[in-house]
Design a binder for these strands. Structure first.
Length: 417
DNA sequence: CTTCCACAGGAACCAGCGGACC
DNA sequence: GGTCCGCTGGTTCCTGTGGAAG
């Protein structure tokens, strides 16, 4: 079957599509290389992180002589350069080790993306060249294979566990405990663990035994200041954009906006990239402060839409319930939300979940920022949560109006305010 | 000071699923 | 083909609790 049979495109539309593709393929008036602004890009120079880079390098350098590096713990909020610095040091270390003829295994795993202990271990196995099926085995068996692989390879192994707090909060610290014990009875080589956490209070979740062996060394990443962000952005912008395209004021604004959100470099880079994309789409010649402001709105809106759309069905019903309750100006306690939720369920013809589950869903929605939930005590009148929407009502309306089942709850205009 | 509400949130468990192993 | 595994997304049962009212 030819492409035309699948996609019969009328003449006029075809030329429009062609134009879009041509424009896409043609030389950009804005970007030189937009990949430089993606957050998985690891630049050759990381401004204002020299101290952390050398700390981490010192900690891991014993592997150059074939012995085990220290375990380390890296703390810092999102977008403070933890991941970039670790990957940077890891990359350099692997290069150096190859150079001196003492190859190592370096494994970088993002625990939040991996999701479960099993998948973290599976990707560790993969990075030392041990095959494991993606499901079906006992976790203990996967661990066993990893251990055997480490012992057999005789190379030192460096394991970087990014967003380690996500793993521990969801599945406990068993995996970490097992990993720290892998070195027992191993002469030379062995496993060095670098844990990266966004959560500064993460330690509280750990068993003291794990904690003491894991935090042999600690590196703390302070948030970037607006000026530091400015330096970072300027450096990246010169590689990402064509000369003279981005105004200094636009970069300053990106830095300032991101700095007001705990100095998040990732956020700053996103702002700059999206601002550039907006400018490009409008065929503007320069990226201005106005583009940056609109980029901020766009990023926020898209984040919300993405989260709302991918919510499980009952979580959507809960969001609807809170939305409806806010319209009634009733106190949004868990009990009230549950009452409304049950009515919403009968309206759409599904069985409601238990209140216990809804309580859990409310917490999950709080964690992703769709709702704000705060435990309060009303004394004699019990202990409950105050629940509010964490995102603008307009956004919710817009997204759910497109939903076949839920649109019925968003028929009329919401009351102003 | 005691009582007591309206939940919070932990623990144990279950069903259904896709999949590995022998 | 039977038995094991982990994950997801639930349920049931339970104990814990901040602070206004009495």
């Amino acid at each position: 079957m030819s492409l035309h049979e699948v996609l019969p495109i009328p003449g006029s539309k075809e030329t429009i599509v062609d134009e879009i593709f041509e424009r896409f393929l043609g030389a950009s008036r804005i970007f030189r290389n937009r990949d430089v602004l993606r957050h998985d890009y690891v630049p050759d120079h990381l401004p204002h992180r020299e101290e952390q880079i050398s700390r981490l390098a010192v900690i891991l350098s014993p592997v150059l002589k074939g012995s085990r590096g220290s375990n380390a713990f890296i703390y810092g909020k999102t977008g403070t350069g933890k991941t970039a610095v670790s990957r940077f040091v890891l990359k350099k270390l692997v290069q150096k080790c190859d150079e001196v003829g003492r190859p190592i295994h370096a494994c970088y795993v993002n625990c939040r993306i991996a999701g479960t202990a099993y998948r973290v271990l599976a990707s560790l196995c993969e990075s030392i060249g041990v095959y494991v099926p993606f499901t079906g085995l006992a976790t203990g068996e996967v661990f066993h294979r990893f251990r055997r692989g480490v012992l057999a390879s005789k190379r030192p192994v460096i394991v970087v566990l990014d967003e380690i707090d996500a793993l521990v909060k969801a599945h406990g610290d068993d995996v970490l405990y097992e990993l720290t014990r892998i070195n027992e009875g191993v002469a030379g080589g062995g496993v060095a663990i670098v844990g990266i956490s966004n959560d500064l209070r993460f330690k509280e979740y750990l068993d003291p035994k794990v904690l003491s062996s894991l935090s042999e060394e600690e590196v703390v990443f302070r948030p970037y200041t607006a000026n530091e962000l400015y330096d970072i952005l300027t450096e990246r912008a010169s590689a990402a954009f064509l000369d003279g395209v981005v105004s200094d004021a636009a970069i300053r604004l990106c830095a300032a906006l991101a700095a007001s959100e705990h100095g998040d470099a990732r956020r700053a880079l996103d702002l700059l990239r999206v601002a550039g994309e907006i400018a490009e789409r409008e065929e503007a010649n320069r990226v201005t402060e106005d583009h940056v402001r609109r980029a901020q709105e766009k990023i926020e809106y898209e984040r919300v839409v993405e989260v709302l759309k991918t919510l499980p069905f009952h979580a959507k019903l809960v969001v609807c319930s809170v939305y409806l309750l806010e319209g009634l100006e009733k106190p949004t306690a868990t009990g009230n939300v549950y009452e409304v939720y049950k009515r919403v369920c009968s309206e759409v013809g599904v069985d409601p979940l238990t209140q216990r589950r809804i309580s859990g869903i409310i917490n999950e929605l709080d964690a992703v920022g769709v709702l704000n939930a705060r435990v309060i005590s009303m004394g004699r009148y019990g202990r409950t949560k105050h629940i509010g929407l964490g995102i603008p009502k307009l956004y919710i309306r817009r997204v759910f109006l497109e939903d076949e089942v839920l649109s019925r709850f968003f028929g009329e205009e919401p009351s102003p305010g």
